[in-house]
Amino acid sequence: MTTIEDRVEQGRRPSLGDGRRDGGERPGFGQRAWATVFAFPYLAHLVVLTAWPVLALAYFSLTDYDTLSSPRWVGLDNFRRLFGDEAFWRSLLNTAYFAVLFVPTQTILALLLAVALNQRLRWISWLRSAYFVPVVSSWVVVGYVADAVFNPQFGMANTVLGWLGLPPATWLQSPVLVIPTLALVAVWKGVGYMMVLFLAGLQNIPEELYEAAKIDGASAWQRFRRVTLPGISGTTFLVLVLSTITTLQAFEQVYVMTGPMRGQPAGQPNGASEMTVLFMYQQGFEFFNMGYASAVAWVLFALIFILTMVQLRLQKKWVHYA
């Protein structure tokens, strides 16, 4: 918010940001005002699309709200119930399990692919395109494509297992395999994008650093450890952030791949794939417990907040700026 006084004051004084002369200074409409104009869309976004739903959910979370009749105040009951709800804790564990499988696998695989692609190869743009086909597909498409692979009855995965002399698996229908299978499909869909990010990071590392390391007698592995990894720490950070987001938002995927599309309630088998967002969705949309679901949403907000803070911290510590 810029008051008139601010503007007047700014108009009078040339501001000296970063010790440089700021562009486009005009009397009466200073840099701050311009900046506010530029940032306005996002300020509106924060009020309308973030603050409003978050506050509305805060209110719902303190009520018994079935979405059909008006909310009834119950204080902290929903939170009390939540902390004793086994299914909720299991959904958090499932989310963490998914993250543990998904985030490192995708990151490492993407890095390996990027290193392999970071050389002059024939057909390189075709190869790279292949990795992008899943990236540009929506989850609805991926749901059906994944079924062609992991359907225990007529999917390809079991045929391949058969060639290897292994017994068939039930994949998404197995309480043990369902989350690894979901993570695998998520990697399959996302790795292409992360690969390109790494590729970009790799190409930003100055060649001289490698030369210097070679002269010092560093082995290929040492060069990778001491030059490549620090050189792409910014990219790695970005990839980790984006992968974490995918994990937290793994709703559409779980819904499409385990849910009604397969003729059963989502989160099958028996809740083995129920992640926190899905748990919330089920409580709110299928069981009419919107108050309770809002409490779950608030726990999610808290988690997101903590993760954001941790990531910002890590970024400061971790990322070497080239």
């Binding site: 900046a35 699309l49 739903p53 709110g284």
Partner: peptide, 30 residues
């Protein structure tokens, strides 16, 4: 540009980036 509260906005953007759509669908519908 010189924008007061830049850091906060950036953190908010990171936070909202992680906000799953399905969480906010009912308030938004209203």
């Amino acid at each position: 540009m010189k924008l007061p509260g830049k850091e906060v906005l950036l953190a908010a953007a990171l936070g909202t980036l992680m906000l799953p759509t399905v969480v906010t669908i009912i308030p938004n519908f209203i």
